[in-house]
């Protein structure tokens, strides 16, 4: 038996979707390795969360009541003690921002090998996991030669588990050492507010690194004006301060679901895709035919955006600015 302990996640009183993905990923791993799937629900309204994650395929749910919000010292201690108590071979955590804040500590605390951002499992005697490298251009297989490991799984890679489960929910009495809690959450801040809500837009023209310079922005603005679209972007554009945070599409920005999404000079990194894959039709303008954006694009133009965009502006009778 190789049991799996998968850890769920919540924030500000709500279970996060990734928790239901952890159920699917955990079941997947437990099936590969021939074991049970245990879930950990830590802090906040644990009984309500436990009820929500009690889906088909879950064998047992363990709740740890301590505080309201995520704290990495509490999570690390609770997960380590629970994994020890259950003798779980595999500890599965989400590769979310909070996952990255405690999973390495759990691996270190339990002396487990750590593999992060995993997208697939397979077992042929030993566990093999698949992860990406070089910005998604290649996949690698990593063999885990110990029969124990700490693993984080990529968000939105596994489906959300469905079907009512009948796992027993039990309270785990973790012994949280308060002297080990040396960071304090003092609040939360919404940063993507403002006058524009790109998540409501039906037609988005979105730009990425391919635009190269801030001086080239007027070209895209002219296209936006000529087509009456809404302007959005991938992360680097906001990081550079060329557009405000409320224009950012992706994991750390907004999730958008327009009828049409035109990705201009966007490679399609996984964090970006997380925010726009729900678009009805995706059009990519990118010179690199291997760019991951083409994995989900419906239409593509593999040509230089600085040639295509002016032509497009003219198609709609707009004025092409000098850039």
């Amino acid at each position: 038996m190789s049991d799996v302990l998968a850890v769920t996640e919540h924030r500000r009183g709500e279970l996060r979707d990734v928790s239901l993905e952890m159920v699917s990923a955990g079941r997947d791993l437990a099936d590969e390795m021939g074991g049970d799937l245990h879930l950990a629900v830590i802090s906040g309204d644990v009984d309500a969360y436990a009820d929500q994650v009690n889906r088909e395929g879950v064998d047992a749910i363990h709740t740890v009541e301590y505080g309201e919000e995520f704290n990495h010292d509490v999570y690390a201690q609770a997960v380590e003690q629970l994994a020890d108590d259950l003798d779980a071979e595999y500890v599965l955590m989400p590769n979310s921002v909070n996952g990255l804040d405690y999973a390495p500590a759990v691996a270190e605390g339990l002396s487990l090998p750590l593999v992060t951002d995993v997208v697939d499992f397979s077992a042929d005697g030993e566990l093999e996991v698949t992860r990406e490298q070089y910005g998604g251009k290649v996949e690698t297989t990593i063999e885990v030669s110990e029969d124990r490991a700490a693993i984080t799984t990529r968000p939105a890679e596994w489906p959300q588990a469905e079907g009512q489960g009948d796992a027993e929910v039990s309270a785990f009495d973790a012994d949280i050492d308060e002297s080990q809690i040396q960071s304090t959450v003092t609040g939360f801040e919404e940063v993507a507010g403002g006058d524009v809500d790109i998540s409501e837009a039906e037609f988005l023209v979105s730009i990425g690194r391919g635009i190269e310079e801030e001086e080239n922005l007027p070209l895209i603005e002219a296209l936006v004006e000529a087509t009456d679209a809404t302007l959005s972007s991938s992360r680097p554009i906001v990081d550079n301060g060329w557009l405000p945070a409320n224009r950012q599409v992706g994991q750390s920005g907004k999730v958008v679901t327009p009828d049409v999404y035109i990705a201009i000079g966007i490679s399609g990194a996984v964090q970006h895709v997380a925010g726009m894959k729900g678009a009805d039709t995706i059009v990519a303008i990118n010179t690199d035919p291997n760019a991951p954006i083409y994995d989900l694009a419906d239409y593509g133009i593999e040509d230089d955006l600085f040639d295509v965009v002016p032509a497009l502006i003219e198609e709609f009778g707009g004025e092409v600015p000098d850039v």
Binding site: V115, V138, G300, E302, P310
Partner: peptide, 24 residues
């Protein structure tokens, strides 16, 4: 390390985008 990289490969493109061509 208890970990070993056993392979690296280009993932098969999942894409089936219609590519418009013929110049800008």
């Amino acid at each position: 390390s208890p970990l070993a990289q056993t392979s690296m490969y280009e993932p098969e493109s999942e894409g089936d985008a219609t590519i418009w061509s013929g110049g800008p």
